[in-house]
Design a protein around this nucleic acid. Structure first.
Lengths: 150, 150
DNA sequence: TAGCCTGTTCAGTCTTGACTGAACAGGCTA
DNA sequence: TAGCCTGTTCAGTCAAGACTGAACAGGCTA
């Protein structure tokens, strides 16, 4: 693992900052950036030294990124350690997660709509429901689009 | 302000939980739920007793929701306090915020693309760029759709 | 099997941010 | 203007969760 250029370092810190706005931890964002930058798969030790973080942090965050299906674990022939790479189509799963959230919201909204009777509330709940539905459809369309162009 | 029904209470707590997944605080979500439920505008004292929170919390969170343009402050004739209601089309501004985030991501990505030269990284950055662009377009379309149907 | 190497888990620390309550500021009423 | 009422700000407390480092587990090599 080579020393990083100025630009690469910048990308890593930027991504760390940016992903914090999405519920991903800073380190998770930095790991993504590092895997994007790197030609070769990286192992735990690489990530530790590159990002100056502990083994535990690598383990925790990698497992989280695996769960999101952004990152894949690989065995390299002749190497004992685990190596990590970005998945080929990493972003689908983020959208699928979003869709799950919409479903959860739908439950809450449907329940409220059925049980809360006053008419102004009904109107406002319907408005929220419409937003949730349209957003959900939009993400589903996007997911199809993303899949179709390949 | 009347006592809440079981269903209303449920909606408030559910919304509080759910919005935590979106970067909104629990109380912000609960305030939104309370304003959706209520026929009449609510004032600070109403929210304090309804949600059992302090004056400071109401103030902070209301101002945050005003910033997001979800909530509107009203003066009621003959009343000295501020009253709060949901805006008529509250969800547009959330999408506009999302669009801003995409712009910020675009900056980071463009910068990285220009300055990081190895070809595999280029590929992966391009993939990220494409995701960001398509997501952005999707949200913009959604925003138009939301606006057009009224 | 013994020893080593890698990855996981877990208890503890530290940071961040939500929330509170009190002090403060500004405006309205009398 | 004096006193009161409402809203804002701010310092302090508390809780959540990110991160670390050490202990642990399991597998591989010799």
């Amino acid at each position: 693992m080579n020393k990083l250029t100025e630009a690469e370092l910048q990308f890593i810190t930027d991504m760390g900052m940016h992903t914090q706005g999405y519920g991903l931890s800073r380190i998770a964002g930095q790991i993504i950036a590092a895997l994007i930058i790197s030609d070769a798969p990286l192992n735990t030790a690489d990530l530790m030294s590159l990002l100056e973080i502990s083994k535990g942090s690598v383990s925790t965050n990698i497992r989280f990124l695996e769960m999101l299906q952004l990152v894949e674990r690989r065995a390299l022939p002749g190497k004992r350690q685990n190596y990590f790479v970005m998945r080929t189509n990493p972003y689908d799963s983020l959208l699928e997660l979003k869709i799950k959230q919409h479903e959860e919201a739908k439950k809450i909204i449907t329940e409220a709509k059925a049980s809360i009777k006053n008419s102004k509330a009904q109107e406002k709940i319907t408005e929220l429901e419409r937003f949730n539905t349209l957003y959900d459809e939009s993400v589903k369309k996007l997911l199809l689009e993303l899949k179709s162009e390949r």
